[in-house]
Amino acid sequence: MAKQFSRFDYFKSRHIPELTVLQAALSDFSYDRHAHEEYAFGVTLAGRQDFFSGGQFHRSPPGNIILFNPEQVHDGHPGGDSALGYVMIYVPSAHLEALFADAAGCERAGSFRCGETLIEDPELRRAILDLTNLVTHRWGTRIDQEHVLCRMATRLVQRAGNYEPVGRLSRPDALLLRARDYILAHLEDDVSLDDISQAAHLSKYHFLRLFRQQFGITPHQYVLNRRINAARRLLAAGAAPNQVAFRYGFTDLSHFNRRFKRIYGMTPLQYQRSVTP
């Protein structure tokens, strides 16, 4: 007879208040019907996840995404003969409202609710697992985690058919230049989208829309690019790559290497050797 077991490991984000990740492995546990106050994004990793929600019975094989809106009642248990393994991310509504509104191009879309509970979508699955890794391994900074939330929100709005691509502004905006200056002054700090939008005196929704229109990239991409550029100057001055990496918020040297190489085509050490006598 197979050994029966249940294991539940919770990880709280160091950067985004109340964002929590669950890693679960179980063979003999069944959830009672319940609902969460947050959005819940899950990926089935092994076995089969069976649950009842929204008047329907669902079966989620490995690779499938499960999404519960706030207050959506559901239960859950392993299906078939194999043990169930899955991850679930719990995200308070407040952290997604501006991201949904930005993706839809409508401030009222902040109250977005997904009409799908069981989803097959490689792009969304990759984002959920990326955020899981950032939280469980304590990697990256706040804006790295917010960027993945933005990817998740954008993909859900795209699937709903409400996505509105962003065009470009024809002139600079003084408020966005204020946001840019704030970023440049805080490259070594763990800044958030709230911090930057407040510095620009804009709501997070309007800030996200206008920033991409003005600069052509997301705030996360802009911050990362500026950090890499600042790191490059320190490398040229002879600073050790590992010291530079930690100074600008990179989790470790390998993370710094990957990001640097995507912009300059070589590792920080290779770059340093090429520009110093």
Rank of each mutant, 00 (worst) to 15 (best):
Q4S: 14
R7I: 14
R7H: 14
F8I: 13
F8Y: 15
D9H: 11
F11Q: 15
S13H: 10
I16C: 10
A24Y: 06
L26N: 03
D28T: 12
F29V: 15
Y31F: 15
H34V: 13
A35I: 00
A35L: 11
E37P: 07
L45T: 01
D50Q: 07
P62E: 08
N64I: 00
I65A: 08
L67Y: 07
F68N: 06
F68E: 02
F68H: 13
N69S: 06
E71N: 14
H77F: 09
G80S: 05
L84H: 11
G85P: 00
G85A: 13
Y86V: 06
I89P: 03
Y90C: 05
V91Q: 10
P92F: 08
L96T: 01
E97K: 12
L99W: 01
A103S: 15
G105H: 10
G105D: 10
G110M: 14
G110R: 14
C114T: 07
E116S: 10
E120F: 05
E120G: 05
E120Y: 06
P122W: 00
E123K: 03
R126M: 07
R126G: 08
I128D: 01
L129D: 01
L134G: 03
T136H: 01
G140M: 04
G140E: 00
I143L: 15
Q145A: 10
H147G: 05
L149A: 07
M152V: 15
R155A: 12
V157G: 04
Q158V: 08
G161L: 11
G161T: 09
G161E: 13
N162Q: 15
V166C: 04
G167Y: 08
R168C: 06
R168W: 05
L169D: 13
L169R: 15
S170Y: 06
D173K: 02
A174N: 06
L175F: 14
L176M: 12
L177S: 00
L177D: 04
R178E: 12
L184D: 09
H186R: 05
D190P: 03
L193H: 02
D195S: 02
S197D: 11
S197W: 00
S197Y: 02
Q198C: 11
A199T: 14
A199P: 08
A200F: 09
L202Y: 07
S203F: 02
Y205K: 05
Y205A: 03
F207L: 12
R209C: 06
L210A: 15
F211N: 03
Q213P: 04
F215Q: 03
F215W: 13
G216C: 09
T218P: 07
Y222L: 14
V223E: 01
N225H: 12
N225C: 13
R227Q: 14
N229I: 10
A231S: 15
A231I: 06
A231H: 04
R232F: 02
A237L: 01
G238W: 00
G238D: 09
A239I: 05
A240S: 11
N242D: 12
Q243R: 12
V244S: 09
F246G: 08
R247W: 07
Y248A: 01
Y248N: 02
G249Q: 01
G249E: 02
F250S: 07
T251I: 05
T251L: 06
H255W: 04
H255R: 12
H255D: 15
K261F: 00
Y264A: 12
G265L: 08
V275K: 02
T276W: 07
P277C: 03
